[in-house]
Design a binder for these strands. Structure first.
Lengths: 341, 341
DNA sequence: AATAAATCTTTACGCGCGTAAATTTTTTGT
DNA sequence: ACAAAAAATTTACGCGCGTAAAGATTTATT
């Protein structure tokens, strides 16, 4: 119980019987003081529940304990999930993460970076919008703030890049589809939001060529981040026009696949690998929702844990002063077999 | 271009030709200075891109321009969507919102409130976890920080409550289902996470009684926030046990319905209002994903815009000093007719 | 027990800005 | 053009803490 209200570190130092500079040292890093001192401070902390004023704390410190986590679209459960994962790791490592979403808008991304700058963060975990990002703003930001890029790489910006191995993703699932039925055609957006989509198309083309099949890419129209709706509309159009050359469709990502499944439903096209189904549909990403589509979506999933751990650890290492040359880490995905393909 | 780096407000005041206190006044509220002064400051701002140090700013100010937005689970697109909506409104109103998720964990909710406290926010928009919330911590927080509760009410905490009219939701969609086919049974979690679920059950019972039908509530097991999986497993069980007394199922919320649809698919039960379908399924919430289920889900949707606007405006008014007694505002939902029911 | 090393205390300054009071300048109204 | 009102300037202090330096105290080493 706080019998007397502690107004500042001076007063707290008094009640804990430790000098203020030492208390300050403790809050900077509890390990930096002697055990006996730490015990006394923490005993006082129990009694009085004092917390240092973070504004006064961060004003003079060259580097704060703040971290930024930026994703392109928080309403996409994939990003929400990876953001949650990163957030937990940051907290566990003793940082104060703040979550931001660019909401799919380049100007918002710039605004977020601007806000982040003023927070003087020790580092930032940034998943850029991709194609529509204002490269100059990103680049300038990375020059000023230790930034680790994840999910979608932009040039060789920042400390390093950590993401998934999109080439492996597509090669792997294409291989699976070829071995279990007709070779797939590839369903994608004509102007995808991020570079991962290009890698996936490229990998599809390579894989098909390697297997001796003729690739068939269906590129649908649509701008923005409403992938389900783009997939649904594009799916309707493609079905109507008979553009699917095989009974197997590999989608560039799960959200597109979810939209395509809806289009299939709406046109009465049955989907699945079971007898009697007309077409097979597979996605890519291991989207949290993919388990609950009808039929449940066969997909190749990001290794969420590994991506977030690798990304977070790389940033922490850089913050701790471990300099290492820019590098790109791409982690393999795991095939998740469900009923759709 | 910034020819000379501006280090603080003093230097910026110098290059803009305005005194520092006036510049300070400008950053507090641009409207509070003369037009000619504002123009000169903004001209200098163009040239030098100076931003006040937010830590120094907030250190002395009794009230910051910070706002907190807290949702129980950010990976639920419903909350992600409403959070995005609120965030935009806060920015438009000149505040600096920060987004937090309790990730479905009561201890995380407490941690978030603790973090929020140290940010000395002007106000907080809080959607509590509900049943599992630590009431005392919430209550203590509301005593210290102007807090507006939304989505799910807890006692009469905070400045006010803004949410949806769950009674109207369920009455309305129950009415629709009764008029268009067999009266619905009600599919829900036995121990729901928040009080809205209780209102919905109550409203279902009242509506059925009013229409002269016998209500049938199927309460399924499951703890936590993975509603789709709970709905899927509960759906399997209920289908196996033949617990659905009519061919129409009203789910307590859309995520449960999504899981139930998956269970139906997995058991080969056809869903829809079309000829030949076995059962009808309806949800409640207007979840962003409900458009893309197979079949697309008939639901009653929150008025996202109205809820977020009412909540944000109420908080802004309170921050501006407009005192008003605690009140609860519950907004009506709109029926969205799709193929599932 | 004596010395060296680590840690703590005391003292002091500064960070960047909010803010108040007294004064001067500019704008407004007639 | 003149007085009154509004706004800007000058001056000055304080917020809560980081941090540096010098001296005092505790702990570790032999």
């Amino acid at each position: 119980m706080a019998d007397t209200k502690i107004r500042n570190m001076e007063e707290f130092a008094a009640v804990s019987g430790i000098s203020r500079p030492t208390v300050s040292k403790y809050f900077n890093d509890p390990e930096s003081v002697r055990d006996s001192t730490r015990t006394r401070i923490e005993a006082a902390l129990e009694k009085h529940a004092y917390r240092p004023n973070i504004y006064a704390m961060n004003q003079n410190r060259k580097l704060t304990k703040n971290l930024g986590i930026v994703v392109p679209l928080l309403s996409d459960p994939y990003f929400a999930e990876i953001a949650r994962n990163l957030e937990q790791r940051c907290i566990a490592a003793g940082y104060r993460p703040t979550l931001f979403s660019s909401h799919g808008q380049p100007e918002m991304e710039v605004h977020v970076l601007d806000t982040l700058r003023s927070l003087k963060p020790a580092g930032v975990l940034l998943a850029p919008l991709g194609r529509s990002s204002e490269k100059d703003a990103l680049s300038a930001f990375c020059d000023d703030v230790p930034t680790l890029i994840f999910d979608s790489s932009v040039d060789e910006l920042g400390l390093a890049f950590v993401g998934s191995d999109n080439m492996q993703f597509t090669a792997h699932i294409t291989d699976y589809l070829c071995r279990t039925g007709e070779p797939p055609c590839f369903f994608e957006m004509k102007t995808p939001a991020n570079p991962n989509a290009h890698r996936r198309r490229q990998s599809y083309l390579s894989a098909m060529e390697e297997f001796g099949y003729t690739p068939d890419v269906i590129s649908i129209d649509g701008e923005g981040w409403e992938f389900e709706e783009i997939g649904r509309l594009g799916g309707h159009q493609a079905l109507k026009d008979g553009r699917f050359s095989t009974n197997t469709i590999l989608c560039s990502n799960d959200r597109l696949a979810i939209g395509l499944l809806t289009a299939c439903y709406e046109q009465g096209v049955s989907v699945g690998r079971a007898e009697g189904a007309t077409i097979r549909v597979a996605g890519q990403d291991g989207h949290p929702h993919s388990r609950y589509t009808c039929p449940p979506l066969t997909t190749i999933s990001h290794d969420y844990e590994a991506v977030s751990q690798t990304a977070a650890d790389a940033l922490f290492a850089a913050i701790d002063g471990q300099v290492s040359p820019w590098k790109s880490t791409r982690l393999e995905g795991k095939l998740i077999l469900r009923d759709s393909a």
